[in-house]
Amino acid sequence: MIEVENLTKEYGEFRAVDNISFTVEKGEILGFLGPNGAGKTTVMRILTCFFPPTKGKVMVAGYNCFEDSLNVRKRIGYLPQRVPLYEDMKVDDYLRFVAAIKGTPAKEVKRKAAKVMDDCGLSDVSHKLISTISGGYRQRVGIAQALVNDPEVLILDEPTVGLDPKQIKEIRTLIKELAGRHTVILSTHILPEVSILCGRVIIINQGKVVAEDRPENLRSESAQRMLLRINGNAPLIEQELSRVGGIKGVEREPASGDTHGFVVVFDDEKRGRQGIQAMIEKNKFELVEMRLLEVSLEDIFIKLVTKEEA
């Protein structure tokens, strides 16, 4: 559905996007992840034909973004980062305007606008001026205008920024429902969002792709860690732990009373776990807690991004 080949974008001397290639299949939700200024928005603006690339080929829904921009624009819905809306319009007027300008036949404009307001939970504010509605509703109006012509491709630039937790949850549910029917690309710098929503992630930093995989694969590549909380003599426990095979390193966690905390980084998870068990039984330590630490995407992200810089 979307093919990007050797995409490069330069602003004068500054190279915002550097030779990026990727494809997105129909019905997929692709997450675009990266720190601020990584080039996410630039890629999205090229995909939406807002400006052309310096080099490279971009195809959306079978049309070239540069040569056949009108045909691409008919097939996309776009939510820009700051959600720019006409503040002086009412929600329903605005959505009718967008529906019409995206080529909906005059007879269906009203129905389509009503449907999308229903889908996005906007019926309560439909007669209010956009300048008077809350941030959460604004964001929904932004998504509604992207959805109103039922586009094949949805491009959402940081769709949950600035919302409260409840609104974030609602917007995420909404986006999740779109998968399958629509192809979605969304950018974010919030990591849990990616693991909740996206089937695949592309991490970019300084204009380059640094990783591309499914969120769970990215996670499994990283080292496993385990938290142990044990009652007893701390230096002795640490000494004993470091002798166990299959363990790369041990870090001390803050203690509470007699209970000392340790984070163990595994080399070989199975061997390490068995070793720890044997060690505790042998020394008759009192085990309080033992739990595998989930590797967060944050860790992977920071690792990838800092590796790139090093």
Partner: peptide, 14 residues
């Protein structure tokens, strides 16, 4: 200034 041009120019209009 308000950024609405970004949406306007990505709508299918010349």
């Amino acid at each position: 200034k308000t950024g609405t041009i970004e949406l306007l120019l990505t709508f299918p209009v010349d």
